[in-house]
Design a protein around this nucleic acid. Structure first.
Length: 429
RNA sequence: GCCCAGGUAGUGUAGUGGCCUAUCAUGACGGCCUGUCACGCCGUCGACACGGAUUCAAAUUCCGUCCUGGGCGCCA
């Protein structure tokens, strides 16, 4: 039996713990070890003349980052971290760590992202890295709770798909027995088909794959998307759902991840509802006041434009009413002004987090929209079929989990928000 | 894909033609040290990505290769 290190208090009489050797300080007659597990760090103090010989031998042999079991008396002592320390009766090396270490877990010396990812298992021993992933876990957990509470059904859609069905982004081709197949870029078509199934409200948290050769701090080739689709809803309904979700997730993290946030030095401020809605045409106007390369109607927002708008607003916001031409075929055009559509992006001041729309649910209009994008409706037969036998009006969005975590925790690089990032150059570990 | 910047001990760095058998820190090893908490002090160990070129002389300049970071493009 062993105790989580956090639960060992100055009032404890004795304790047995298992953890990694975080630091060793040898003062001569006295040795100090810091032992770390995922709950915290405790000091183990060894007065060399007073401990059993086996303890002394193990203390001399052990290396940093080895796994050790320690049992002994707990002493309340102000000078020790956490106000307590263990004086061991037993010290057992369970797994001796090699030396030198590929990176310094105690972070006396920093390591570059590349070095860190090469030894991600060691990097993730750092309390601040662990904290990021505990918070990410809380984020997806809170999002799942929230969507269940709103009556959404958690679905899983295929990640291996038949063809480059959506146009736009590049797909990763794979061999599927005798057929050509691709890694899916989004669950978009499948979650819409579940509207035709009458599931009414669905969500999925899953991987998406984009074969773009981008090389930035905010793109990954394998990312995690939170996708939602709701029937009998329009774009305004799902924007409200999205901002409710963001606020719920922030509140949940603030309420349950206090120690992790403290580890990261973050004091989380909960976004205020409603998020401002800015029309696309207003957005380019605002951006054009400050950016060099002016935008005109029909241009997508550049990163510089996103930052210019974001820094003025200073909080999460929506950009609504986009030109139909620069949104996907499934975005619903306004009937009275079809050059605009019921699409939106949800933005953090730093970057886009989510995009969504009310969808085209009319079969013939959808075919027309697909053609207008220069795509062949025949390639979409499996999808279009769902629009012929009673497709309800519906709307939805997709939200990048890594970007949500990145912006929530003010991380400098999206790779901080994923354990094993896949980017232009990295396929291992 | 275009552009910019890089690759020096395990890790993070200094060094832009000779002053470099390469700086500092961390680390490892040895020594001293009974209250450290980035412990301190002394000693030792360990590196110029690879290949070619220029030069009396290359970590430093040039060419090529490989690798990396970032900006942009692209990204429904």
């Amino acid at each position: 039996m062993h105790l989580p290190i956090r639960t060992v208090t100055p009032e404890s009489e004795s304790a047995a713990i298992i953890g990694w050797v975080h630091e060793i300080r040898d003062l001569g007659g006295l040795m100090f070890f810091l032992i770390r597990d995922r709950t915290g760090i405790i000091q183990v103090t060894i007065p060399k003349k007073k401990v059993p010989a086996e303890v002394l031998d193990a203390a001399r042999d052990v290396s940093r980052e080895s796994v050790v079991r320690v049992r002994g008396r707990v002493k309340a002592i102000d000078k020790a971290p956490g106000g307590r320390e263990i004086v061991p009766d037993g010290l057992e090396i369970i797994s001796l760590a090699g030396s030198p270490l590929p990176l310094d877990v105690a972070e006396k010396v920093p390591a570059e992202m590349d070095t860190r990812i090469d030894s991600r298992f060691l990097d993730a021993r750092k309390p601040r890295v662990r904290a990021i992933f505990c918070i990410r876990s809380a984020v997806t957990c809170a999002a799942t709770e929230f969507l269940h509470s709103r009556g959404c059904i958690n679905i899983t859609t295929p990640k291996i798909v038949a063809a480059a069905t959506e146009g736009g982004t590049e797909l990763f081709p794979i061999a599927y027995f005798e057929k050509e197949a691709f890694m899916n870029q989004s669950p978009q078509l499948y979650k819409q088909m579940m509207m035709a199934a009458g599931f009414e409200k669905v969500f999925e948290i899953g991987p998406i794959f984009r074969a773009e050769e981008h090389n930035t701090i905010r793109h990954l080739n394998e990312a995690t998307s939170l996708d939602v689709e709701v029937s009998f809803a329009d774009h305004n309904d799902v924007m409200e759902l999205l901002e409710d979700l963001i606020v719920y997730v922030y509140e949940s993290v603030a309420g349950t991840c206090g120690d992790d946030l403290a580890e990261l030095g973050i004091s989380l401020s909960i976004p205020g509802k409603p998020f401002p809605r800015i029309r696309y045409e207003e957005a380019i106007e605002i951006a054009n006041r400050t950016i060099e390369d002016k935008l005109s109607f029909g241009d997508d927002l550049t990163p510089a434009a996103e930052r210019a708008i974001g820094s003025g607003i200073g909080q999460h916001y929506f950009i609504v009413d986009w030109p139909t031409d620069i949104r996907p075929y499934y975005a619903m055009p306004y009937p009275d002004r079809p050059e605009l559509c019921k699409a939106f992006d949800m933005m953090h001041p730093r970057m886009e987090l989510s995009s969504g729309a009310q969808r085209v649910h009319d079969h013939d209009l959808l075919v027309e929209r697909i053609r207008a994008k220069g795509l062949a409706p025949e390639a979409f037969e499996f999808y279009l079929k769902a629009f012929r036998y009673g497709m309800p009006p519906h709307a939805g969005w997709g939200l990048g989990i890594e970007r949500l975590v990145m912006t929530m925790l003010d991380l400098g690089n999206i790779r901080e928000a994923v354990l094993f990032p896949r980017d232009r150059h990295r396929l291992t570990p």
